[in-house]
Amino acid sequence: MTVPNAEASFGLTEVEAGPAASTPGRGRVVRALLAKPQVVAAAGFLVLLVLLAVLAPVLTAIEGSGPNAFHSGAVDSDLGGMPIGAFGGVSGAHWFGVEPQTGRDIFARIVYGAQVSLTISLATTAVTTVVGVVLGTVAGYFGGVVDTVISRLMDILMAFPALIFMIAILSALPDGNRTLLLICVLSVFGWPYIARVIRGQTMSLRQREFVEAARVSGARLRHQLFAEVLPNLRGTIIVLATMAAPGYIGTEAALSFLGVGVVPPTPSWGQMIAASVNWFTVDPTYFLIPGAFLFLTVMSFIVIGDHAQKVLDGREA
C-alpha cells in the first residue's frame, strides 16, 4: 500500500506477488468498476480535479484573482494580516477565502497547486512504472546474475531512509527546475516497489506452459516478452500504477510541507498546509481547504486502485 503520510514506508507492500491472473477483457473490467458507486465518485472527483488544473487560467479569470496577486484589502493589517470576513475571508471575489498576511486567493492557489501536484505525481508514476516494469521483467525472466544485480539494487534502495534522503538531496541541490528534480528523486526511490512485484509475477509466468512453449519453440526474445509476458502483466501494472500515484502526491506534498518542494511563488498544497500551521487556531479554513483537496485526491486514487485490484483478481468480477 502506498502511504501518503511519508513517514511510513515509501511504496507498495500490499500488492501481492502471487501468480499472475490472466487479465480479463478491458471492457469487462471498466464495466465492473463503473458498477461501483465509490469508484464512480472517486473517478468523478479526479476528472473534476484534472479539469480544475487544466482550466485553472480560465477559472481564475472568472473568479478575478491570479494565484500570486496580493490583496491588501482582504486582510486586516492591524491584526497581523487576518483575513477579513468569516471562514478565512470567503466571498464572491474569493471563493475559498484568502491567505492571511498576503491576501492571495486560495481558490486560485488550489487550482494552480493541482497542476503541480498532478504533473509531478503522474510523471513520476509513468517513470517508475516504465522503469519498474522493464527491470522487473528483465530480472524475473532472465534470472541469474542479472536478477541478482537488479534485486540487490532494489534491496539497497529500499533499505535507504527514503524521506530523509530525499530531503537531504533536495536541500543540497540548487533550485533549478524543481518540478523535474522532484520527479527524478521520487522516481529513484519509487521504482523498486513496482519492479519487485513485477519480478515475482514474471518469475511465476515464466513457469507457465504458454511461455514455456514459446521459449522452447524458439520464439524471438522480443516476442516472448512482449507477446507472452507483458500482456499478462497488464492488470498488475495498472493496479500498481494506480496505487503508486497517491503515494507520490502525498510525498510531494510532504516535501513541500517541509520546505524542499517547489519554489515560491509556485503554489503547492503541501506548502499551503505548512504555511497554515501557525494560523490553525485563528483561521482553520486556511488548512482545511488544501488538506481536504489532498485527502480527497489521495483517497480517490486508492479507491480506484483497490477496486481495480479486486476486479482483476477475479474476486469481485
Binding site: F70, S72, V75, D76, S77, D78, L79, G80, G81, Q101, T102, G103
Partner: peptide, 15 residues
C-alpha cells in the same frame, strides 16, 4: 514597490 503589501507580508502594522 507597494510598501503596504510588504508590511502585511511582514506581519502587518503591529509588527
Amino acid at each position: 514597490i507597494n510598501k503596504q503589501q510588504v508590511v502585511d507580508a511582514a506581519g502587518g502594522n503591529q509588527l
